[in-house]
Design a protein around this nucleic acid. Structure first.
Length: 281
DNA sequence: CGATTAACCTGTTTGC
DNA sequence: TGCAAACAGGTTAATC
């Protein structure tokens, strides 16, 4: 479940259901799910056994569970189709079950299910409270560590299009294709607008739009078009009905009535209003 | 150095 | 109806 609001929904579910519990065993059912855990599956499972989950953390689209016994965490990225599900021990294995954690209390499992296998889990040391592999990721706009002045300076120094910059996790994390389009619509910016032409106030407006859109999505449990995007209990969020442009090709813009357009962008799609979001010349 | 593209997967939808 | 192409919310490694 990709972008920040959906990942935060999962984090909250993990906080509710797995904090304080001791891992009895781990099972890797597909090696690709732990491809970034260099020591391999056997070492992964051996190192998890007997550890307790201390908390549930997130930065951008990354999640991690700090563990007892050493300064390290079980980190996860959901990729395009990953799910972390809390399900009864005796529930049948999901079709795309990749990693399974059982707990010493006999309560529900934590299962990593991932159809497309772009997601992954791994164990990694914590450096200043953040998993070492994601040290290069910028803070997300809901973190206290997010530095707005620094973000503005770096964004305006870029020589690229604004949407590319929004999707660059080393500049600002947590924003993906849906919320980039939604925030650009709210700020009345075309995705191809050169970053160096944005004034400081316009950047501030865009950042406020990012926070508004993702905050509203979070309140509704995230965006779900199908059963791939669910919380730890398998339930979908309701933000799809609040989307203004994403997936709304040929439907009227709620501000001006003009038909929303879809354009190819970076091997994917960009949705925008031709009237509210004028293409830069 | 920064910017851009190709590649990694499976399943579903679209168009001929 | 069948089949192939296009498409799906992400990141990384490689190339320019």
């Amino acid at each position: 479940m990709p972008e920040l609001p959906e990942v935060e929904v999962v984090r909250r579910g993990l906080a509710q259901w797995v904090i304080g519990r001791e891992i009895a065993s781990a099972e890797v059912l597909h090696p690709r799910a732990i491809r970034r855990h260099v020591p391999g599956a056997d070492e992964f499972t051996a190192r998890l056994k007997g550890r307790a989950v201390l908390s549930a953390e997130r930065r951008g689209k990354y999640l991690w569970l700090p563990l007892s016994g050493a300064n390290e965490a079980l980190m996860a990225h959901l990729g395009m189709s990953g799910q972390l599900l809390v399900v009864p021990q005796d529930a049948p294995p999901e079709k795309h079950l990749r990693v399974r954690l059982r707990f010493a209390d006999g309560g529900p499992d934590l299962r990593f299910v991932d159809q497309r296998t772009f997601g992954h889990v791994m164990l990694s040391p914590l450096v200043n409270g953040v998993p070492e592999p994601i040290a290069h990721i910028a803070p997300d706009p809901f973190e206290a560590a997010f530095d707005e002045a620094e973000f503005t300076r770096r964004l305006r120094a870029r020589r690229t299009e604004i949407k590319r910059a929004l999707l660059d996790q080393s500049l600002i994390s947590g924003v993906g294709n849906i919320y980039a389009d939604e925030a650009l619509w709210l700020a009345r910016l075309h995705w191809a607008r050169p970053t160096e032409t944005l004034t400081r106030p316009k950047v501030a407006e865009l950042l406020a739009a990012v926070r508004t859109v993702m905050g509203a999505a979070l309140e509704q449990g995230g965006t779900s078009f199908d059963s791939l995007y669910v919380n730890v209990n398998g339930e979908s969020g309701y933000f799809e009905r609040s989307l203004e442009v994403y997936g709304r090709r040929d439907l009227p813009c709620s501000r001006c009535g003009t038909a929303i357009r879809r354009e190819a962008f970076m091997n994917r799609s960009s949705y925008s209003c031709p009237r509210c979001q004028r293409r830069p010349r």
